[in-house]
């Protein structure tokens, strides 16, 4: 976002400008600080208000610990599946022309548009105990809804665009000459992908996967509906925060939120550092 600053030379601009500019800058910066910096500071203050020891105690509580582990586990599985399927979808969208490609491309964004709570409902209506498909799975002895698989499914739905939309532009911009050379030398499509294309798009895949991981850590709307929220078994960290608020323990809720936010921040920082590095 670096812009070559064009200093105005005209005298007309200098007159009356500084005040307006200052006002604009002040308003924008104040809005951002009040809206973003204040909440983060508040969260840190609340979470740490009773000291680090108390924060630690709030987190080693079996229910809290179980929630954190479940959240990390499901997010990891989701990120892995997303990395593979997201890359595949991006590859298909960029490299092939087929009827319905445009529709597929638009559908990728649907999860961003659909309210996450509605996503959760969709999964329950499809796979819940009263749905035909759900009963089918139940008969086969597989519990989907109100169990971890449904959490992973919901996370996959919600984060579907992230890997696809990160890899797609990179794949699009990629110089085809290397691939063509590989084909000319007799390499198969798979070999070419693995040896030529994949190394070039790997950073984008990792970025997309990390972003989806960060997004999944805090996911609430879809998970609260599909998970069943049984403490130590299907209660995720974000739902745990909600539970603590409901039971009036804002301190425990802040502590858990602080942990979630810290992890997401670290992941986001890694992503943006990588992106800055990639752009030179």
């Amino acid at each position: 976002m670096e812009l070559s600053e064009a200093r105005p030379t005209g005298r007309s601009r200098a007159r009356g400008q500084p005040l307006g500019k200052l006002g604009l800058r002040g308003a924008a910066a104040t809005y951002l600080l009040v809206m973003v910096a204040l909440p983060v500071a508040t969260l840190a203050r609340e979470g740490l208000s009773k000291g680090l020891a108390e924060l630690g105690r709030a987190l080693v509580h079996p229910v809290a610990r179980g929630a954190v582990f479940l959240t990390l586990e499901t997010a990891l599985v989701m990120a892995a599946v997303n990395a593979v399927m997201g890359t595949l979808i991006a590859y298909v969208l960029v490299r092939y022309r087929f009827p319905g490609r445009k529709l597929l491309d638009v559908l990728i964004d649907l999860p961003f548009a659909i309210p996450t709570l509605v996503t959760g409902m969709m999964i329950v209506t499809l796979l819940g105990p009263r749905a035909a498909l759900g009963q089918l799975f139940e008969a086969a002895g597989v519990r989907v809804v109100y169990a971890p698989p449904a959490i992973i499914l919901a996370l996959l739905f919600v984060t579907l665009p992230l890997v696809v939309r990160t890899v797609q532009p990179v794949l699009h911009e990629l110089d085809r000459a290397d691939e063509e050379a590989a084909y000319t030398l007799g390499a198969s499509e798979w070999t070419t992908f693995r040896r030529v294309t994949l190394p070039a798009i790997a950073p984008a895949i990792v970025s997309g996967a990390l972003q989806s991981f960060a997004r999944a850590l805090g996911e609430f709307g879809s998970v609260v509906v599909v998970a069943g929220n049984i403490p130590r078994r299907t209660l995720t960290a974000a739902v745990h925060v909600f539970g603590e608020v409901e039971s009036g323990d804002v301190h425990a809720a802040s502590a858990m939120s602080l942990v979630l936010v810290t992890i997401s921040f670290c992941v986001v920082l890694v992503v943006s550092a990588r992106q800055r590095g990639a752009h030179g």
Binding site: V36, A37, L43, E219, V241, V250, S254, F265
Partner: peptide, 26 residues
Amino acid sequence: VLHALVDVPFALSPVAVGVVLLSLFG
């Protein structure tokens, strides 16, 4: 810093946002 702050809302869990507002105004 300002630039980095803009993206913060994307990284915060919605429930964390709710918790913050409650600890400010609750």
